[in-house]
Amino acid sequence: MTASRAEPTGTARQDLLFYLQSARDALLWKLEGLTEYDVRRPLTPTGTNLLGLVKHAAGVELGYLGDTFGRPSGEPLPWLADGAEPNGDMWATADESRAFVVGLYRRAWAHADATIDALPLETTGRVPWWPDGKDEVTLHHAVVRVIADNQRHAGHADILRELMDGTVGMNRSNTALASDDPAWWESYRSRLERAAREAADRDG
């Protein structure tokens, strides 16, 4: 499966793959045009950063749509090994290049898609890091879970990129924005600020 899908095509498997790929594409799109510093720099108090989101998403796909169904990828992920430092999958070290992280993510796509193509959606797997007796999951459930995780982080990436340089939009071909006029947005934001202050005054 590739990133060229234009719209869902109707079957459950195809719809799942469409929304999974749309989140993948959005995450990588948010890296475009940025320096090595900007793709890595933390923009929240908890350190959220663009390249870290991609690194995390790669591990999630390889885990839930690989290991869980007895299909290990063979990709070394030392930041997820026992004893690794907390949150090591949420940022890229200076030695982990953008090309390395993006390449890992693309290989994770291919491995995950191969799992989805090879197995019925009702196939049952076991999540290695879930508690014994509560670790069983269907492929359908695992794909939905990965879509939810990727889309959530794509939303994080939207906000990080807007804070960084003002670049906005859902994807390259569809911004999903009400206007492309900066003056309209300035007026809109001012209106929201006034409404927030009025509500605070009434509450006080």
Rank of each mutant, 00 (worst) to 15 (best):
residue 3 A to Q: 10
residue 4 S to R: 15
residue 5 R to Y: 10
residue 10 G to V: 01
residue 11 T to C: 05
residue 11 T to F: 02
residue 13 R to V: 06
residue 15 D to M: 05
residue 15 D to G: 15
residue 15 D to W: 02
residue 17 L to R: 02
residue 17 L to F: 11
residue 20 L to S: 04
residue 22 S to T: 08
residue 22 S to A: 15
residue 28 L to F: 09
residue 29 W to V: 01
residue 30 K to Y: 06
residue 37 Y to I: 12
residue 43 L to G: 03
residue 46 T to S: 14
residue 49 N to H: 08
residue 49 N to M: 05
residue 52 G to P: 01
residue 52 G to H: 05
residue 53 L to G: 02
residue 56 H to L: 00
residue 60 V to Q: 07
residue 60 V to M: 03
residue 61 E to C: 00
residue 64 Y to V: 00
residue 65 L to C: 04
residue 69 F to M: 02
residue 70 G to Q: 07
residue 73 S to N: 09
residue 73 S to H: 01
residue 74 G to I: 01
residue 75 E to W: 01
residue 77 L to D: 08
residue 78 P to L: 08
residue 78 P to H: 11
residue 78 P to R: 11
residue 79 W to R: 07
residue 83 G to T: 00
residue 84 A to N: 06
residue 85 E to D: 13
residue 86 P to Y: 14
residue 87 N to Y: 14
residue 87 N to E: 14
residue 90 M to A: 13
residue 92 A to Y: 00
residue 93 T to W: 07
residue 94 A to C: 01
residue 96 E to T: 06
residue 100 F to P: 07
residue 101 V to D: 00
residue 102 V to M: 07
residue 107 R to F: 03
residue 108 A to P: 04
residue 109 W to E: 06
residue 110 A to E: 15
residue 111 H to Q: 12
residue 113 D to W: 06
residue 113 D to A: 15
residue 113 D to Q: 12
residue 114 A to T: 07
residue 115 T to D: 06
residue 117 D to N: 11
residue 118 A to I: 10
residue 121 L to Q: 05
residue 125 G to H: 07
residue 126 R to D: 10
residue 128 P to D: 06
residue 129 W to F: 15
residue 131 P to W: 12
residue 131 P to N: 13
residue 132 D to P: 08
residue 135 D to C: 12
residue 141 H to D: 13
residue 145 R to I: 06
residue 145 R to A: 00
residue 147 I to Y: 00
residue 149 D to R: 06
residue 149 D to W: 12
residue 150 N to V: 08
residue 158 D to I: 01
residue 158 D to E: 12
residue 164 M to T: 08
residue 165 D to E: 08
residue 165 D to L: 01
residue 165 D to I: 02
residue 166 G to I: 01
residue 171 N to G: 13
residue 172 R to V: 04
residue 180 D to G: 13
residue 182 P to K: 10
residue 182 P to W: 00
residue 183 A to F: 11
residue 183 A to G: 05
residue 184 W to V: 07
residue 186 E to F: 10
residue 188 Y to I: 05
residue 188 Y to C: 03
residue 189 R to F: 14
residue 190 S to C: 08
residue 192 L to V: 12
residue 192 L to C: 11
residue 192 L to F: 02
residue 192 L to D: 11
residue 193 E to H: 12
residue 194 R to S: 01
residue 194 R to E: 12
residue 198 E to T: 13
residue 198 E to H: 05
residue 199 A to T: 07
residue 199 A to E: 15
residue 204 G to W: 02
residue 204 G to P: 04
residue 204 G to D: 15
